[in-house]
Every structure is written in structure tokens, then in C-alpha cells.
Simulated assay, not measured.
Amino acid sequence: MESSSACERIIDANLNRSKEALRVVEDILRFNYDDEDLATQTKGIRAHLGSIAKKHIKTVAHRDTQNDCLTQVTLPEEKERESLFDILIANFKRAQESLRVLEEVFKLVSIESSLMCKQSRYKTYILEKQVYDKYSKY
């Protein structure tokens, strides 16, 4: 049986992960590609997640970073990137994975938040395709 504390920790970690990943995407689109439209779309998704985070701010109380068993684990493929485009795509994937986790775990806590995460996840799929079509040639 799951504990509410575990759910809160999962939500906290994945809200942070998804927002951080989208910030990386936004900054690369903004500063490397000067793409106001795509950067603004990314910022909008991140803001949408911020509104979810505000509803669930108490998840921070369950944060236990110092005792998290995976904070010191880094896989070899995480250590190197070949280009800003590779970083961009890796962070799209990171955001999508964390949004999927949120969608599932929120089913135990808030159906509304679960549906909002699902919507955000689909928006990132669409945005990733736009970015890929526009910049994969570089």
C-alpha cells in the first residue's frame, strides 16, 4: 500500500523535474535559436505547471533530497551531449516522462491535476515535433 508521503514526494520531484526541463528548452529556444514563438509556447506550458504546483505547494514538506537513493546516480549517457539541440531533445523527453508520472500519481490525489498534466504532456509532444521539424537540420 502506498503512503501519502510517497505520493507527495513523487509529485514534488516530478513537478520540479518537468518545470526545470521546460526551462532548459525555453532558454535554448530563446537564446540559441531566437525563436520567440516556440519559447513563448514553452513558457506557457511551464506556467501551466506552475499553477498546478501552487495548488500542491505542501508537497515541499515531504521533500527529502538528502535521503533520496538516486541523487548521486548519473548514467553515462547523461554526462555528455553533442549539441544544444541534443540538450533540447533530452529535456523534452525528461519533461514528458515526468508529466506522465504526474498524470498517473495525481489520479490518487486530484483528477483535475492529472488531466492538466496529461494536457501539458500532449502539448510538449506537439511542441517537440515543431522544434524537431524546424531545427533538426542544424
Rank of each mutant, 00 (worst) to 15 (best):
V109F: 04
I126Q: 11
E78P: 07
C69S: 15
L99T: 10
Y125F: 13
E80S: 15
T65P: 02
Q119T: 15
L108C: 03
Q130W: 03
V101C: 12
F92S: 01
L88C: 04
A61V: 15
S114H: 06
Q119Y: 10
D86S: 07
E104R: 07
T59F: 00
F92D: 02
K123I: 00
Y125V: 04
P76S: 15
L127G: 09
R100C: 11
F92M: 04
L102P: 11
L127R: 02
E97F: 13
G50N: 07
L127D: 05
K58F: 08
L84H: 05
P76H: 09
K55I: 01
R81I: 09
A61W: 14
I126C: 06
I87G: 04
D86M: 02
L88M: 04
H62D: 14
R121Y: 14
L84K: 07
D86L: 02
Q130M: 12
Q119I: 05
I87L: 09
K93D: 12
L70W: 13
Y132S: 14
R100W: 10
S98W: 02
A53R: 14
L70F: 14
A95E: 08
E112N: 05
S113M: 01
C69H: 14
K93E: 11
S98E: 01
K118C: 11
E112F: 04
K107E: 07
K118H: 13
V73Y: 15
T124F: 01
Y122S: 09
F106K: 03
I89S: 01
D133H: 15
S83E: 02
E128N: 12
I89L: 06
Y125K: 05
S114F: 06
L99D: 10
E82I: 01
Q119L: 12
K55W: 01
Q130G: 05
V105K: 05
E128Y: 11
